[in-house]
């Protein structure tokens, strides 16, 4: 195959990152997924490794505004992308949780919590694009995030409540 030392740049949680794609030490393998890179290289372990087929949503991160299954994206394909993980939602200085995260915590919108980072990221991507979704739209946006503890009911209640709260605050 061809000789190359391909370099890619992406922003992860606001921090510019450079990776060299290749087989050498410290390089990102051409067949490495975005999930592997953020977890194993950047230590951002909120996104979970689970089904590895994009079916469960536990690895959800936001890439260029859209929620994606990071296990089904090659890091080598992310040149120029802006990636946000759950870690990127809280205040970078104080570490304070974002209002959305707080809402999940305050309302116990989780059970074991394994799927929660993915659910929060899907919710975040939806609210960024559509701050005032209907419950149906929310359900659809979260349809790729599985929860085996059946926390969905609390999640929907929490997020709808959160949306109303935001609206009230704005008003």
């Amino acid at each position: 195959m061809k000789e190359h030392l391909e370099q890619i740049c992406m922003t992860v949680n606001g921090v510019p990152r450079k990776f060299v794609i290749g087989d050498g030490v410290g390089c990102v393998s051409p067949s490495e997924t975005l999930l592997d890179t953020i977890r194993d290289r950047l230590g951002l372990t909120a996104a979970k490794r689970s089904c590895e087929h994009g079916a469960c949503g536990c690895c959800t991160v936001i890439v260029d505004g859209d929620a994606v299954a990071s296990c089904m994206v090659l890091t080598a394909d992310c040149d120029g992308s802006s990636v946000t993980t759950l870690e990127g939602l809280c205040d970078p200085v104080t570490g304070e949780l974002s209002p959305l995260q707080k809402a999940f915590a305050d309302n116990s919108a989780f059970q074991c919590g394994f799927c929660t980072p993915g659910i929060i990221m899907s919710t975040k991507a939806l609210l960024d694009q559509n701050p005032n979704p209907t419950e149906k739209e929310l359900t659809e946006a979260l349809s790729g995030n599985y929860c085996r503890c059946i926390s969905h009911y609390q999640v929907i209640r929490t997020v709808m409540g959160f949306i109303n709260e935001m609206k009230r605050k704005e008003a």
Partner: peptide
């Protein structure tokens, strides 16, 4: 098709 996570990719 699939779910929003897949459709976005």
């Amino acid at each position: 098709v699939a779910s929003p996570l897949i459709r976005s990719t």
